[in-house]
């Protein structure tokens, strides 16, 4: 008898519940709907629209369907090819420097030194202050007449006259790289630092008991242990650097004579600067395809790295 009594309220509860339940499928879609609508508006629709525009000669006056003409033009455009190579060079050099400096910085910040909390805070300003403000600071530094760098070079007798860092093709490109690295390094540093702090202390102690030197422990424990984070940071950083626009635009606007024009700057100049929306859209689609390819190849290697370093 007791079992029956016990079951009774349970059954009723089930019945009441069933009355209020809507079909599972609809409920699921309702839950997803807000995010879905949002993504459609800010990602999907612009992407589709860009893709459509890339097959037109859209300008302010209007647009006509032109088929693959924009793409054909790009395929034959030597200047555009140079821009692609320049963009990849820009990306690899900048990301490489950010990772190397980030690794050195994280290692130093991870060391047991007095006042390390203060050092950790001091690393952040380039990342925390608005990029535009940081870049204007660099603009002054690079200025030939009142800039700090040119001034110091002259005082120390390294040069006779003022140097306009941003006025020559080579120096402008590398100056922009320096600024980009300055902005991008703190975040890499902090992520790598966080990863380093996640490495079990026991591993270091075990290695120390076995007689491993500091450098040996760094090479054979720290690096392999944080490799998955290094690799992920490299990908994120690569995409941001590839599409890094504000820094170049504020410093050089892509000049002099296109020396600092990367794909994203070229796209902006074409579409927004010259009102050639169709041609600009074609460039944007090229960026999407290149980054997608790059990411795919990268993911392939990321998987391998994760497997090798046993992060499960």
């Amino acid at each position: 008898m007791t079992t029956v009594d016990h079951d009774q309220p349970h059954d009723t509860e089930k019945n009441t519940q069933r009355r209020f339940v809507m079909p599972e499928g609809i409920f699921a879609w309702l839950l997803v709907a807000p995010a879905l609508i949002f993504i459609c508006i800010i990602v999907a629709w612009p992407l589709v629209e860009t893709f459509r525009l890339s097959f037109t000669d859209a300008r302010i006056a209007g647009e006509n369907y032109v088929g693959f003409e924009n793409y054909a033009d790009l395929a034959g455009d030597r200047k555009f090819h140079a821009t692609i190579w320049r963009t990849f060079y820009w990306m690899f050099l900048s990301v490489g420097l950010k990772l190397v400096l980030g690794l050195i910085g994280a290692t130093l910040l991870n060391a047991a030194v007095p006042g390390k909390a203060l050092f950790r805070v001091l690393v952040m300003p380039p990342w925390v202050i608005p990029i535009a403000i940081g870049c204007i600071g660099w603009l002054w530094l690079y200025n030939g007449y009142f800039g700090l760098l040119s001034g110091m070079a002259q005082r120390l007798g390294i040069t006779d006259g003022p140097i306009e860092f941003l006025a020559y093709k080579t120096s402008a490109f590398y100056s922009a790289i320096v600024t980009d690295v300055w902005v991008g390094t703190p975040m890499v540093t902090l992520f790598l630092l966080a990863a380093m702090q996640g490495v079990s202390r026991d591993l270091y102690e075990a290695a120390w008991v076995d007689g491993a030197s500091r450098w040996y422990r760094f090479r054979r424990i720290t690096i392999p242990q944080i490799m998955p984070v290094i690799v992920s940071m490299a990908l994120l950083s690569a995409i941001w650097t590839f599409n890094s626009f504000e820094i170049i635009w504020i410093l050089t606007e892509g000049g002099p004579r296109g020396a600092t024009t990367t794909l994203i700057v070229d796209t902006y100049k074409t579409a927004i600067g010259n009102y050639k929306f169709g041609e600009g859209a074609a460039r944007a689609v090229v960026i999407v395809i290149l980054l997608a390819l790059f990411s795919l190849i990268y993911m392939f290697f990321l998987n391998k790295v994760n497997k090798h370093y046993g992060s499960k």
Binding site: D202, V209, P224, G310
Partner: peptide
Amino acid sequence: SMVFQSYALYPHLSVYENIAFPLRV
């Protein structure tokens, strides 16, 4: 030599290399 509670094995190295670690050092 010491054996740790957490084993302190190097997850990225094979069993062979884990055992060989002090000798490699």
